[in-house]
Write a protein that binds this DNA or RNA. Structure first.
Lengths: 252, 252
DNA sequence: CTTTTCCATGTAAGATATTAACACAGATGT
DNA sequence: ACATCTGTGTTAATATCTTACATGGAAAAG
């Protein structure tokens, strides 16, 4: 039957990542290449695979491809970010309600989050889309003017949102940190939003990869003592770590 | 220089999603196809693009496609949608302020919109991201709970947004239409939002591809006489067209 | 200042993959 | 039993891709 075969092809491709027509042909010796081609065409139109010269590849495979070698050029320090995100994700429990910002570290976190029953608020467009893939997870997007650099929203209006929303936990990342200037970012409205987040949330976890240390951005939104947990990588300077521990902030 | 060209190709692909070699050739008339091929090969090895028969596509584009439930809709009736979107885009003038919904037709419109100084409000995540690519255009995302089926937001809270915002024009699309039941969609909160949009906007343009005609969805958000312009395709039934014209609605 | 080497590029032939066009058989509905 | 449709196969025509080799100019070596 046609449907079954198409389904089987899709599964094969998901497993193998990529297949040539000849490989497919050996899997399905009882139909012609032309038929397989037509099947692939259908799968492509359904958005499930990408046809490439010689065969096809699964969309999932493409996503893998995109995350690894590409990462190094576009977004730097991705490996650290992923590890930080994994640590952060491990802290999240079912049935909680949390805020995640819209930065790239937050995006990594979104990918690492388990598909369990939690409610997530975010101001990141890409983060929201990523989270929308998860069936058990509930996402609320904060509205506002879209900042093109980082695909996040922020606007004074966004504040009105917070009036009726509650979350226990805010997990955010900063663009820059120094002990003197605290955690800072480049946009005032964003800083505003994050400050408000701090007030709303019972606890605040900060994701900070060590490349951000020593940098200063125009708008500080939290000081060292405002956070409850600092999630960072192994390069994090020991003396700085002391500063956090002194204030009873968990560093991991 | 080679590097620059490769970079340029990558950017082009990110914007256009997909390009054939011939298209690339017209963009870079001073190098041979073979060179462009080699460039694409390099980009592929860097994981930034996927080479497909005839050309290449950006990894980002693929990731969009992979938003699966969304992808299925995206794939359907695309040609009509693009043509409708082009018509709609041609109606938009500089310095105006408009609302676009989050549906797939709206997504096509987002792609067709010229990069001029306009302000767009939307409740579609993908639409917002698409529009954020344009430098001169201003985007505001409406917040709310994210509906996973169509990557749009809608929630009673969203209404509060509208209190301080103004736009002249709303260009929206319906999931279903019959003369008796008007324009309808599947979600109550979404219908609510669109009704409110109607009140806020001076004019409402409706994009409706003919495949939607005769279908009924649970929640009507506008009746035939509520709209000012109907943008549709060539398959639109003549008798129905009469109904609109009778009410002084422009049909195009 | 020359010579060498290397790299980006161009050309064209040959290999490969894809589409298009037509044909056929079995299923489905009238 | 007839028409129709859908899935399939076959082949030729077309389009695309790769390979191999040639060229020219810039950087490196002499």
């Amino acid at each position: 039957m046609k449907k079954d075969r198409i389904e089987e092809i899709a599964e094969l491709l998901d497993k193998r990542g990529k297949l040539t027509l000849n490989q497919l042909d050996t899997y399905f010796p009882d139909v012609s290449q032309m038929t397989l081609r037509r099947d692939l065409l259908q799968l492509e139109q359904a958005g499930r695979i990408i046809r490439v010269r010689g065969g096809a590849m699964s969309v999932k495979e493409v996503q893998k491809v995109s995350s690894e070698p590409y990462a190094k050029k576009t977004a730097m320090h991705t490996d650290e970010k992923i590890r930080i995100a994994q640590k952060a994700a491990s802290l999240i429990e079912e049935n909680c309600s949390l805020f995640i910002d819209g930065g790239t570290t937050a995006m990594c976190l979104a990918k690492e989050l388990p598909d369990i029953n939690i409610h997530v608020f975010t101001n990141g467009l890409a983060v929201a889309i990523e989270l929308a893939q998860k069936k058990n997870l509930n996402v609320t997007m904060l509205g506002g003017q879209v900042m093109k650099e980082n695909l996040s929203t922020a606007s004074p209006v966004a504040k009105s949102y917070f009036e009726n929303t509650n979350f226990e936990l805010a997990i955010i990342s900063a663009s820059a940190f120094t002990p003197e200037n605290g955690f800072s970012c480049g946009s005032m409205v964003e800083a505003d939003l994050l400050k408000m987040t701090r007030q709303k949330a019972k606890a605040m976890y900060m994701m900070l990869d060590s490349s951000k240390i020593g940098k200063i951005m125009p708008h500080t939104f939290a000081r060292l003592e405002d956070i409850d947990v600092l999630i960072t990588d192994d390069e994090f300077p020991a003396d700085l770590k002391e500063e956090f521990l002194k204030r009873d902030i968990v560093v991991m």
